[in-house]
Amino acid sequence: MLEHVELFFKSIFIDNMVFAVFLGMCSYLAVSKKVATAVGLGAAVIFVLAVTVPMNWLLDKYLLQDGALVWLGPEYADYNLSFLSFILFIATIATMVQLVEIVVEKFSPSLYNSLGIFLPLIAVNCAILGGSLFMQAREIETLGLAFNYGISSGIGWFLAILAIAAIREKIRYSNVPAPLRGLGITFIITGLMGIGFQSFGGMLTGGGEETEESTEQVNQILEPEVVVPVLEEEVVEKNTEIDEKDISYNDVKK
């Protein structure tokens, strides 16, 4: 149960599809001009991810992995069809998106019209294929976890596009320099939001001494990579002696 909760929060905040791994940026940039369409596209992405990730997990487990074909007979144990993953994943995704399109057209024609070309374009959205590929790369263990991963990464993407759409609606009345208007300022704001989301890095440190470890995690993320080993020991020593309120980020930089 605990690993479900951990995976859920990790996929939304720490491994956020937009801010940590930049998946789905094209439609993220194109559809985020109004909050209403952004919400519609985000919901469609969550739904497609929730359906395709478990389906691709099943394909991966029983067809593509090293030794997956063992259920056909022991002589098939050596077969490794993982090189076919790309074609099979994209085929399931294209089929599922076609299905989602039919469902949306039937139940919500207004949403169908406002999404326009972007609904069939979800099939080639890197977020969808990326969800399945990351599921395969991280070797997610059970079908339940795969479903969890699909929904939570979708929610992460949805949060991101909702936030940027809301901000873009507001900055229309701000004094953005002309060359930055539109695309440029969106990139920079997304970068700043990404920095903000990095602060969630200390969230899942687990174990008893949570407060000490979480300060350490946050300090680690702020430090440049080379200097990490030296400063880690100093920070741990300080944590055991002083109340953590006294520790500021200035101490880490020395």
Partner: peptide, 12 residues
Amino acid sequence: IIPPAALIVVGI
């Protein structure tokens, strides 16, 4: 090195 830097460099 962190991912958001790429977004800001492209913005520039």
